[in-house]
Nucleic acid binder design. Structure first.
Lengths: 341, 341
DNA sequence: TTGTATGCGTTATCAA
DNA sequence: TTGATAACGCATACAA
């Protein structure tokens, strides 16, 4: 099963046809020097004529490099990961590499399966966005033991490897600070999934900043776990129906914020007049003036790819890199200034 | 370069350790019958202990099946393709396959490069969303000649293969019909890229429907080519500044529609009061009540994946399948009814 | 400048 | 029930 496709011409074929040795063909095809111009021309032309396409599987077996890397993300449909993916992809292409895209769907078992599949496929390296909370990391440590080059988005406790991170704690502080500066004191917070470290850190930033200002958050306004826009809409509906709403709501990401806003619109309520909303990711496919924290996902994707290829090519095992990106609040019109009537 | 990672234990290793032959180890590991329970146990346990992970590159060379497929899309960051990708991915995973994701960025050369890379990698099959207008198809015909299993989204002239399509012409008719029924007569149309057949067909649907109603579209309101949200915003700005705006604007996709709406908002104008807007794709990450044509991208992704695997496993060698999906207008609040004050 | 031989990790075909 | 041996397509060290 599987195969059956028409045989591509192989180096052996070309050797037979030209009467040359396989090694000669191979050398010429790979641009090595030390061949007469005459045979080189002959080989090149024949390869052209026969539509020779090198078999990278065979190449990979013998050269121990598959010219492919794996990218493990959490959710294909989230713009956040789209931009990470785009960045990684572009770097890969520059190096003549191809990328296996795997989405864990925020499911640790799937993440583990995907990573194992990648090592079975003998990729040359891996960019991983792992689940980071309430999970184990054995599979990542295994990777290091196998000396598989990889970089992660988000720091794994106790593991030294190339790590990239966003300053989510500071992001949580920034939005809270911003809301407070606009006169908000009763502020709600919608968390992401409990496997998300980013969510936890943004929440901590929120909590700490509230405290610094002598404000105490209402437990009832902290939504512990939200995994989809549908769930966000449900939260929005509950809030819209409540007579004890917060004046502002911080959402783990823009997808959640949009869900909440949709529910408000459907209920005939207005953002920010009936409640202010602020999100994270600054996604650009929302025609709503949502204030949001901009995250350099594309840059991070590029940087992770670049770093991975450094490791793949010049395997210096020392000196793991740690990069933390700043987040930046982008003010739009979804936050009401309670000081100005 | 490339390799150098710590040697994984191989079948040969296990053979040496157990004193058995490689073929025995291989057979047992692959669940073949005809081995004594004793040796089977011994081998399985040893493989476990040594963390044996099969080398699928070697497996691929010998078995001629790489357990991977390629997916060629146009744009990673567009939700339309995210859902296609998600559908294809899920089917691949069900079959224990992995997918190479390639984005052509609407660039034919890149599309060709990617496809060639996929055959170099000897993928078992391909799902392709090709450029369809103003381009050549030699590389796709080549694929067929090589007997590489593949399915396409969008029909390629003169090529019989498994093809999936959306009824874009009808979609164009639907939106136009809808606008006309709301009293619009002066309607603009923003095209996508000129390599997009979907764009061309939606435009034709628009033109034909206008004609049927005795309406003649203003050439100046047909924007021939738009490749990004930035360009859409520019169009929106021009329209916003114009004193001769259409009453309604059909946009090739929601991303373009959102660009236009953003520009209108920035200019202090309102959709639909100052102009109605309607899009395609019905993307859900917009908190604006955009009327849009819903497209079953996820279903199509699943169907294309499913069909591809049928071909790969030759479970089905019958005639090529052609599927055309219906599109469905979803009314929201971005279209003004000119009949009701 | 070109050819020979061997190996990469697996599967598969025969024998034993 | 198990074991040699030869592919698979290519790279490479070494010979010629």
């Amino acid at each position: 099963m599987g195969g059956e496709s028409v045989l591509n011409t192989t180096i052996a074929d070309l050797a037979r046809i030209t009467g040359l040795a396989k090694s000669t063909i191979s050398g010429i095809l790979n641009g090595k020097t030390g061949f007469s111009e005459k045979t080189r021309k002959k080989v090149m032309q024949l390869a052209q004529e026969h539509g020779y396409i090198p078999n990278e599987i065979a190449k990979g077996l013998s050269s121990r490099s598959t010219k492919s890397i794996g990218l493990i993300i959490k959710d294909i449909t989230n713009p956040f990961y789209n931009h990470i993916t785009k960045g990684v992809q572009e770097v890969a292409i520059e190096h003549g590499y191809t990328v296996f895209l795997c989405s864990s769907g925020e499911n640790q078992e799937l993440e583990i399966d995907h990573i194992e599949a990648m090592v079975r496929k003998r990729v040359d390296g891996l960019v991983i966005v792992p689940l980071l909370e309430e999970v184990s990391f054995d599979h990542i440590f295994d990777l290091k033991r196998k000396r598989m080059p990889f970089v992660t988005l988000g720091q794994i406790p106790g593991l030294s490897c190339d790590t990239f991170e966003f300053d989510d704690y500071d992001g949580g502080c920034q939005v809270t600070q911003h809301l407070i500066s606009k006169g908000h004191e009763r502020i709600g917070f919608v968390c992401g999934l409990k496997t998300s470290k980013a969510s936890k850190q943004r929440l901590t930033g929120f909590l700490d900043t509230m405290k610094q200002h002598g404000l105490v958050p209402d437990e009832a306004l902290i939504f512990k776990e939200t995994g989809s826009m549908a769930e966000a809409q449900e939260i929005g509906r509950r809030l819209a129906a409540s007579d004890d709403r917060p004046t502002a709501l911080i959402c783990f990401d823009d997808v959640i914020a949009i869900g909440v806003i949709k529910a408000f619109m459907a209920a005939g309520l207005n953002v920010p007049n009936d409640m202010s909303v602020i999100g994270f990711d600054d996604i650009d496919t929302t025609a709503f003036p949502l204030s949001s924290v901009s995250i350099p996902t594309y840059e991070a994707g590029k940087a992770m790819g670049t770093r991975l290829f450094d490791r793949i090519f010049q395997r210096d095992d020392s000196d793991f890199r740690y990069v933390k990106y700043d987040l930046k609040l982008v003010e739009r019109a979804s936050v009401k200034n309670l000081f100005s009537p």
